[in-house]
């Protein structure tokens, strides 16, 4: 189940404008597409539980059969622990699905919105990263 998110994107956007600087501990999420969310499924090649951000690297096969390594950016361990993640809940070799917003510049990196583990459990990425606006296995929002 996707955990609910009480802060609206509009409120966060307003906050970013008012503050004039990134509103959260590390960097702004502005380089990521604000309105695009897509689902990827792939195999985890690295899961790094670090501040200021948690990173998942995964090999994702595109429709034409090409495999590309993507870097998926999570919130920080503190936020993720508070919404129910565990530092060891993802392992190298796991096949997972993610809902993400890719970088605007086309590089293969993306901001996590939700992750679905091999056992079907779904976790969000905390309020600052914003909620998933699509559901797993449904058509991607553009």
């Amino acid at each position: 189940m996707i955990r609910s998110d009480r802060a609206s994107a509009a409120a966060l956007f307003a906050l970013a404008l008012v503050a004039g600087t990134p509103a959260f501990a590390h960097h702004s999420f502005a380089p990521y597409e604000p309105d695009v969310q897509v689902q990827f499924t792939g195999v985890v090649t690295k899961y790094q539980w670090t501040n200021p951000h948690v990173y998942i690297e995964m090999d994702i096969r595109s429709a034409d059969g090409e495999t590309k390594r993507w870097l998926i950016e999570g919130a920080n361990p503190g936020i993720l622990n508070r919404i129910g993640w565990k530092w060891n809940m993802i392992k190298v070799g796991d096949e997972i699905s993610v809902i993400v917003s890719p970088l605007r510049n086309g590089d293969p990196a993306a901001l996590l919105k939700a992750v679905r583990l091999p056992d079907g459990t779904i976790f969000g990425n905390g309020g600052p990263a914003g909620p998933a606006r699509i559901k797993f296995d449904e058509e991607s929002a553009q």
Binding site: N51, E73, A109
Partner: peptide, 20 residues
């Protein structure tokens, strides 16, 4: 604990670069 240990944001670059 919060130790800032993997900073993939390089301010010397014009654009935020994430190590891939």
């Amino acid at each position: 604990e919060y130790v800032c240990e993997d900073n993939r944001y390089d301010p010397s670059l014009e654009y935020q670069q994430l190590r891939v």
